[in-house]
Design a protein around this nucleic acid. Structure first.
Ligand SMILES: [Mn+2]
Ligand SMILES: [Mn+2]
Ligand SMILES: [Zn+2]
Ligand SMILES: [Zn+2]
Lengths: 147, 147
DNA sequence: CTACAATTGAAAAACGTTTTCAATATGAGC
DNA sequence: GCTCATATTGAAAACGTTTTTCAATTGTAG
């Protein structure tokens, strides 16, 4: 009963890396720990700074290379922000989009957008064959709303 | 009657520059001519290359500086694309969003998106105060659909 | 036409990202 | 556990893009 199958997201990601033939190294553990739990999209330099608290020898190059792998495995995704276009966040589960706080960067996924009707309209009016869409909402998160 | 008020978009932009206290110079004319008529979002280097056909002395720095001004005046806007995040296109008129061709880059504005309902749902479920949204559709333009 | 400030392009600097490379650490096989 | 082939590492160099600096040029108000 208290024998939980409590696999943290972090452990899942590391297992995923291993299962894909990649090695589980100390620098990767530091980065995964960070990314699996972050509620903010982070840019490589921020990941580097944060990660060095955990593993001081960490190199910025390794951050880039690890993000590349995590993205390839679908664990992390790139986010375009007002503050930068190379920010990384835990990937969406299924069809989700992001709400982002313009003040603190807090990011949250939501689902349930229904733009099928719009896509039909645009298909008709423009003749485009639409295959993909980007949708992102921006505003203030609950914490930032109250100064 | 045949005395048309046929001010080209290009001339409007130049007038706008002048009215804002900026000078109308040959390099700016070359860039404006290009941007006011382009149906593709262009990156600075492409604008530079195209612009040099018209005005061979054009410098890349001037492209950057002119885009900065045109954006400030709301005549041009930055577009995030799969192929690049620093592309520029004629700004939207009012509330419009973009459909972009993933093959040739052709861009078209559309309006009539209604995501008010979605915004309400997300406001309720996340507590965010939503102030802005990005919506972009991607696919194949009519020309690219037929190979 | 003149005079002055805005604008220009070349060159240098700054920036973020990628490549190169020798040293190191990992994990499979014993 | 120990060995070994090799995946991974960080530092340094290279890279492409954007910004800054600066002296020469150009636009425009008067
Ligand atoms: Mn959607
Ligand atoms: Mn809209
Ligand atoms: Zn972007
Ligand atoms: Zn096309």
């Amino acid at each position: 009963m208290s024998e939980e199958t409590q696999t943290s997201l972090c452990d899942q990601w590391l297992a995923n890396l291993a299962a894909s033939g990649y090695r589980v190294t100390a620098p990767r553990r530091a980065i995964v720990e960070l990314m699996a739990s972050s509620t903010h999209a982070l840019e490589p330099l921020a990941i580097y700074d944060q990660g060095r608290k955990d593993y001081p020898g960490l190199g910025l190059v390794t951050v880039y290379r690890t993000l590349e792998k995590l993205e390839e495995l679908g664990l992390v995704q790139r986010v375009h922000h007002h503050q930068g276009c190379h920010m990384y966040l835990r990937a969406a589960h299924g069809h989700e989009h992001l709400v982002l706080c313009t003040r603190c960067g807090h990011a949250e996924y939501f689902s349930g957008d229904d733009i099928g009707g719009l896509i039909n309209k645009v298909t008709q009016s423009t003749g485009f064959e639409i295959r993909e869409h980007w949708l992102q909402l921006f505003g203030l998160c609950p914490a930032c709303k109250n100064q």
